[in-house]
Design a protein around this nucleic acid. Structure first.
Lengths: 90, 90
DNA sequence: CTGTGACTCTTAGTCCGTA
DNA sequence: CTACGGACTAAGAGTCACA
């Protein structure tokens, strides 16, 4: 995938997405544990997503967006920012 | 992941995303080969995405959206349709 | 120009447990 | 309630060759 080191993923794009997801979940005042269950994904893995550790697939992004009751697009930064995030590193 | 059959991915959500991506690319009148190169991903792998074979990760979705010059959200169906697609199968 | 099979390697994703 | 680690399985990432 993103030829990355096995430990500690610090991809800025993932961090941006992670932060948005966490903010939306906390906005609903619901715990990771409960939210992950509702979204139908593992709590441990979901926690990793909020920490920017994983690059969730289209299907899981859709599950999360639905559970958060928002559009998938709201989980990502805008086009302009994406360009920066994608070119700022690898 | 999606506790699904090992061969032939026919997830309706992936098909929906795949169709949108293909339509957008063709709208630009550009070949898979050229587009994949611009997006920085392998031609063969990219072809698989357009066939709904893979559930691309957040990072690849971002690369594709940027190359298509659209928002990531435009690659996904709206919330209402997502609910249907996510519950219509597994 | 695109679809696929085959293959290798890495990561997504699950499950358990502990601080 | 959240972070994180280990162990493991399934699937994505990436490349080639050929129809």
């Amino acid at each position: 995938m993103q030829k990355r080191k096995t430990l500690e993923n610090r991809d800025p794009l993932l961090q941006a997405v992670a932060t948005r997801i966490r903010a939306l979940r906390e906005g609903k005042g619901i715990a990771q544990e409960v939210f992950a269950y509702e979204a139908g994904i593992d709590r441990s893995y979901y926690g990793g997503i909020e920490r920017g550790k994983y690059s969730p697939t289209a299907i899981n992004l859709a599950k999360i967006a639905v559970a958060l009751d928002v559009e998938v697009g709201e989980l990502f930064p805008g086009r302009e920012e994406l360009v920066v995030l994608l070119t700022s590193h690898n």
